[in-house]
Amino acid sequence: MKLSSTAALAAAASALALAAGSAAAQDLREIRYGTNWVAQAEHGGYYQAVVDGTYAACGLDVEIVPGGPQANNRMLLPVGRIDFYMGGNMIQAFSAVQEEIPTLVVAANFQKDPQILMSHPGVYDTFESLKDSDNILVSREGLATYYQWLITEHGFDEESTKPYTFNPAPFIADETAVQQGYLTSEPYAIEKEAGFTPNVFLLADHGFDTYSTTIETRRELVENEPEVVECFVNGSAIGWYNFLYGDNAAALEAIKADNPEMTDDKLAYSIEKLKEYGIVDSGDTLEMGIGAMTDARMKSFFDKMVAAGLFSADLDYTQAYTLDFVNQKVGMELKPAQ
């Protein structure tokens, strides 16, 4: 679905400071942004920037291309079928350097990865106690990535794991089970299906300090059209401020149009958790704005992934990202005073 709007927020135009005044007099640059899953609240800032006219204010006509189980938008980025991609976390970006794929992370719209472990209340009630379970349900991808960090950093062991098939029934049936999940998704499903609220442990709050929901693009776009990258990064930041703190009704309708299975209560739950846990707006964003990234944070996470055996220490991980388009406090004035 291609979303468009002729309305441009005056606040967005002034915040962008990207020649918005002349954008209306020129043809908009068509941009395709591929997400990594079906439309949901976790994509809200981008939908907001489309329906508000924020991207259009600096010259972009953005089409959101939803991902999903039958789509692989990541593969479309290097070959030019999409212009920007929503990365999951920095493991993927470091892998791109390792595989010599010419892509770059240009912003991080989630300061915290929403990856969680959850348990039944009254059984394993602390993060450290989770490793006492002999029934830790983890997907194959999770076992190869963050679970290796759990082993080296927190003393978990692989023998305690069992395959997670994205079916909550085994977890619900066994009160000693521990299950992986996404902060804004699986706990909600458990509450609805099983009638209890699980313990939720956000890995980011226990040292898994990757950035998440990153904006990736091709190196050639950064080199040849930096103004396009700047507009998309800044427009996305403004979109996230407006989605979290302003009137997001139109964005929510656009999400539901792209994903008819999405419900109002699920959207509301997800937004509540994004705010409660500071997924989008916390840490460095409080001083530098949504999308913030730092070299120190990148090095910290890379070193942990080296220790976990995912990468060689001599990999030049700094080639995975650039700070040229972030940390400029764009859109911060849209956040209500605390």
Rank of each mutant, 00 (worst) to 15 (best):
G34K: 08
W240Q: 11
W149A: 00
N327G: 06
N248V: 04
A204I: 06
G235T: 01
E153A: 14
A173Y: 02
S22I: 12
A108Y: 00
T197F: 11
A11K: 11
A96Y: 13
P168Q: 12
P170E: 03
F325H: 06
L16Y: 00
T126M: 12
L3T: 03
D125R: 14
L3G: 08
V51F: 02
L16Q: 07
T165P: 04
S95I: 10
F94D: 09
V123Q: 10
V306S: 02
K335D: 01
Q98Y: 08
A169K: 15
A96R: 10
E193L: 15
K162H: 01
A10P: 07
A49F: 09
Y85C: 04
A296S: 12
Y188P: 01
D324H: 06
V50S: 00
Q179Y: 12
A250D: 10
A249G: 00
E272L: 11
K112C: 07
F127K: 07
R218E: 11
L76A: 15
G246A: 12
L334G: 00
Y317W: 08
A20S: 12
L77N: 15
W37P: 03
S312W: 00
Y182H: 14
D174S: 10
V326R: 10
A249F: 01
Q111S: 13
D61I: 09
F166R: 08
D174C: 04
D205R: 03
T197L: 10
V97K: 09
G80I: 04
K299C: 01
S133V: 03
M262D: 00
I136V: 07
H120R: 05
M1E: 11
Y55H: 08
E216R: 13
S236W: 07
K112Q: 11
S185N: 12
R140K: 14
F166C: 05
N234F: 12
V330S: 04
V50E: 02
N248C: 02
E253K: 13
N36R: 15
K273S: 05
D324M: 10
G331C: 09
A177Q: 02
E99Q: 13
T126P: 10
